[in-house]
Design a protein around this nucleic acid. Structure first.
Lengths: 162, 162
DNA sequence: GTTAGATACTTTAGACTTAAAGTATCTCGC
DNA sequence: GCGAGATACTTTAAGTCTAAAGTATCTAAC
């Protein structure tokens, strides 16, 4: 038996990693949120929604697509889309094939507006990660990919209960 | 000149790392939030506040300490503490030395309650990180420490603007 | 001692978020 | 065709969160 082994169970590496992950996310999110508000007077969730639509292209996304992509509840998406429609940044049409669905797209104003914000948004992110070199970034990406898979697996495990 | 170099500027490693970081945080946070609600009918911010007080020990923390530790606004802390006082989990006293300050502590019920939740909370975190071995966890902790410093530096840079 | 400014906290208005219940529509077996 | 159940979305109630303005108290220069 390895004398040192006992210690391994009580150094709480997972918990420490989780807390540090949260701290990093909070720091960066606070920076981005503040920048978006000060520079374009837009909120982070609205920016995020525009971003998903921009990535999706001309066909747009359904409400359900948005909910999954943004990892928020369907009710939340309803409110955000309403707000953005009100601001003229987003357009919403009922699907002809399935009248329960609606399809959400950027308007021209929404596309132009989002593309204007994009470079500075990326600059804020780049600044936050400036202390990491390319090797660090690649290792971090790999570890986070692993964590993402692991967390997804745990999520299912928790729901289905074996 | 390295032909490959040009590509380095446009692979958006930082942005990809940020999005993946957010995904991981969301996944784990959703799991923990759901567990806390289903198992003890408590919210994550309240659990977090109890956690900070538990770590602080018998002297408790001021409202400002809590705000900084939890990385949320002072007004937010006011509401959370009120709720927890109402539930009898937390006690609040005005500081004699400085009557602007108050000091917040766990009640006996709060301490017992929190300590009852602690092991299962840690189990959820352990499960989320189960796919990472000790080496992975140590590398992740290191990279996140670096990122934390970097993000803090960027935060200051953004505010002070040289 | 007064007072100008700083500090600790609260209040307010508005936005975000969720879980749960509700509505409308679709699908599929019969 | 016709339900029964599934699916897409909305509504509601309650909680979280922030920025900004406001209150109370302290500090320090004079």
């Amino acid at each position: 038996m390895d004398r040192e082994r006992g210690h391994e169970d009580s150094d709480h590496l997972q918990l420490r990693a989780w807390l540090r992950l949260l701290t990093c996310t909070n720091l960066i999110e606070t920076r981005v949120r503040g920048g978006l508000r000060e520079t374009w007077n837009i909120t982070l969730p609205r920016f995020d929604l525009l971003s998903q639509l921009h990535r999706a292209g001309d066909d747009g996304l359904t409400m359900g697509d948005l909910s999954r992509a943004m990892m928020v509840s369907a009710g939340n998406v309803t409110g955000l889309v309403e707000a953005l429609v009100g601001e003229g940044l987003v357009r919403r049409t009922t699907s002809a094939a399935d009248r329960r669905q609606s399809r959400v797209r950027l308007t021209q104003a929404g596309k132009r507006g989002f593309e204007a914000m994009l470079p500075e948004h990326e600059r804020w992110i780049d600044e936050a990660f400036a202390g990491l070199d390319r090797g660090d970034l690649k290792r971090l990406l790999e570890l986070l990919a692993k964590l993402k898979q692991s967390a997804k697996a745990a999520e299912r495990g928790g729901k289905e209960a074996a």
